[in-house]
Design a protein around this nucleic acid. Structure first.
Lengths: 395, 395
DNA sequence: ACCACTTCTGTCAATAGACGAACAAAAGTA
DNA sequence: TACTTTTGTTCGTCTATTGACAGAAGTGGT
């Protein structure tokens, strides 16, 4: 046996580094790439050829001449491969095939009870994936990664849900392991709110390094991107702002057992409950939204007050992590501008001027799509990472 | 002129990568290094020699034989070079020369009013640095980096203080530029609380990835390390938790102009003020601490209540960023266990079990030293980074 | 229309750096 | 003392990158 173990060298191994520059989608000439990498142009030529051989990079229209021979340009070919993106909600699931730019090529969604347990749900996921691939006349070879969002805390490194309150049977289930048995590509699993944050950032704020997405629906949670990276915390439960206590909370009992939690005041069901005490027939979050859209003053007031409560918590978050954008999403964000108005009212009056000066609080635009787009972003990010590319190249 | 611009290649350039492995201080044999890097043993030999030539690495006692020839070991030589670490407080400054392991070799501190402005203070800093180097019989060539902590927000990339409330004349002053004119090495500047966080983490929790240091003194601030990296936020003012509103705050006016801020209730001066309303003669934070140490019940109660108020804010922080260690420092932390007891009382009762299960809330042990140790850690981190080593090697 | 000039592309010999086999040296073991 | 085991060193081989050069494809002036 050889005296030397194989082992991949510390030094990078080929075309993948070059590829990282092209990931932003902007086309570049060989000369530009040489300048950016510091490598010789002859080396660039060789590597570009390698990437073109894989189909990952394509020539695009020639650039303008600057006095000499016009340079040819190259750019990422988003159609080279596809990823599977899944957003599994409590009662609803969306599955999509997207290209490497995050464009949805095929999509399917249907009501699905997550509580059915991992095997039935993931079987359905695999079947649906195959169906979508067929519809697009693609083979499983074109699939390079899978991103999955689930409604509960996840240990990201292993892809296992941990103590998920609304996902019976999923605790510590090896999701990537199971899925890989059927579709043998890397599988990334994360909390749905984290995934929404990735999606919202990828589609609308690609350059923002400090970002928060707050989802207001049945529960309230946040995905935190700090220093350009998604922060999952020590136990993978960062962003769990639904159980922070708020001033107006008083003794209101929360389903977590504590009192005065944000979620017990400002979540969809909480708003509906408070309206019922005022004699208004609001059974669910959806009915609250309908009341608001119909112009019901009490409902509007209640939603705005929920916004203020959320704003109180976000004001603390702003002081701690100093983000530049906060996006508000989730079903309750569909109740027009009232929720966000309440948030802004409190955050801008209570936080320090330096922190709010350049702070944008915006509605999450991709709304229902954010989940699946985030799952796509997560999968693409992995597939196009140096390791992912090296795997494609076959090293 | 050459057709090719110089430019450092993307691929790493020599011994620096190898050196990154030795930064932890643990000695290693050539075989171990070969295994860890994947490089051939012959390559390791060449690089180790290069590093030994620079004095950065030294042979240490031979390791045990495992049946054959006993291997020789190598480790980082902390005495190879030194860094300058400065902790500039509002009214007090500490300057130290430390080796690359953060061991203080020479130290000087004296009362110094930061409001005197940048030029006098930094001149004093440079003079003191030269004096300390002399005392150690070291030349300026042995100095590889400078770390400076200042009591206000700093734009880290440029090293410029921005809108510092208690540092008149320092706003946007180019600290690194000025210092480099006299001591031509890299200069890193950061907020003092961030620097304390780095110091406390480096000395006591080197492996902890999610860490918070809370400083309770004249003001209240926090340094946040998330995902292993210090988080400075969009404007460099992350960790500014002193002006988060707390439940007990009511209409208490804070010097920031807002009402109910944590700092208006739980800072040293705030505790002293509350004791005075109870008829106790406590003029300053120091007197509060003396009263506590003397066993004054009202003072103890007041400090513990301050701890609870801080705990309320930290409970929110725990939910958002899910740290595994929170260290409490600053002058008020010297009032025994009372402050921290209040913090623990609230955090452990209010936060979610999953988040507190593995959470440690500890007193900051390095206390007065944390600042200067953090400045040292910051400087050493830069000096031993791949770029720093490459600069030493001379590429 | 022609020519000088600029800028990019592709090819290729030269080169630097890493590899890995072979060998020598330095222990421990029987 | 002979043998085993592991380390340290040397050196030919190999591969990736470089830097130079010739050709291609434009621009602009005359």
């Amino acid at each position: 046996m050889s005296e030397y173990t194989r082992g991949s060298a510390l030094g990078a191994s080929g075309a993948s580094e070059l590829f990282q520059l092209l990931r932003d989608g902007n086309p570049r000439t060989r000369a530009q790439l040489a300048l950016e990498t510091g490598l010789a142009r002859s080396t660039i030529t060789a590597r570009v050829e390698e990437l073109m051989g894989l189909g990952l990079v394509l020539p695009v229209s020639e650039a303008l001449s600057t006095g000499g021979r016009p340079p040819s340009q190259f750019a990422l070919n988003p159609q080279a491969r596809v990823v599977l993106a899944a957003d599994l909600g409590a009662s609803h699931a969306t599955v999509a095939i997207t290209d490497l730019a995050g464009t949805v090529l095929a999509e399917h969604n249907e009501p699905l009870d997550i509580a059915a347990g991992p095997v039935p749900i993931l079987s359905w996921l695999v079947d649906t994936a195959r169906e979508l691939l067929n519809r697009l006349s693609l083979s499983e070879r074109d699939l390079v990664a899978i991103g999955i969002g689930v409604p509960g805390p996840v240990h990201f490194d292993t892809g296992q849900p941990v103590n998920p309150p609304i996902m019976p049977g999923w605790d510590r289930f090896d999701v990537p392991g199971w899925v890989r048995q059927h579709l043998s590509v890397p599988v990334l699993v994360d909390n749905d709110v984290n995934i929404m944050a990735l999606g919202e950032r990828a589609t609308h704020f690609p350059t923002v390094e400090h970002f928060m997405l707050v989802k207001v629906a049945t529960g309230i949670g946040a995905g935190l991107i700090s220093g350009g990276r998604l922060q999952r915390g020590a136990q993978g439960i960062a962003g769990d702002i639904g159980h922070i206590r708020v001033g107006r909370g008083g003794d209101t009992l929360c389903h977590c057992g504590n009192r005065g939690c944000l979620e017990a005041l400002a979540s969809g069901p909480a708003i509906a409950a408070s309206l019922r005490t005022q004699g208004i027939d609001a059974a669910s979050s959806t009915e609250v939204i309908e009341l608001v859209k119909a112009g019901n003053t009490l409902a509007i007031q209640a939603v705005r007050q929920a916004g203020r409560d959320i704003g109180e918590v976000l004001s603390a978050c702003v002081s701690l992590v100093n983000p530049s954008v906060i996006a508000i999403g989730g079903s309750m964000a569909r109740a027009g501008e009232h929720l966000i108005a309440g948030v802004r009212e409190v955050v801008y009056s209570r936080s320090m001027p330096l922190a709010t000066e350049h702070l944008h609080i915006v509605p999450s635009t991709s709304a229902a799509r954010a989940g699946v787009l985030g799952a796509s972003a997560l999968a693409v990010h992995h597939a196009l990472s140096p390791e992912g590319i090296d795997a494609l190249v076959g090293r």
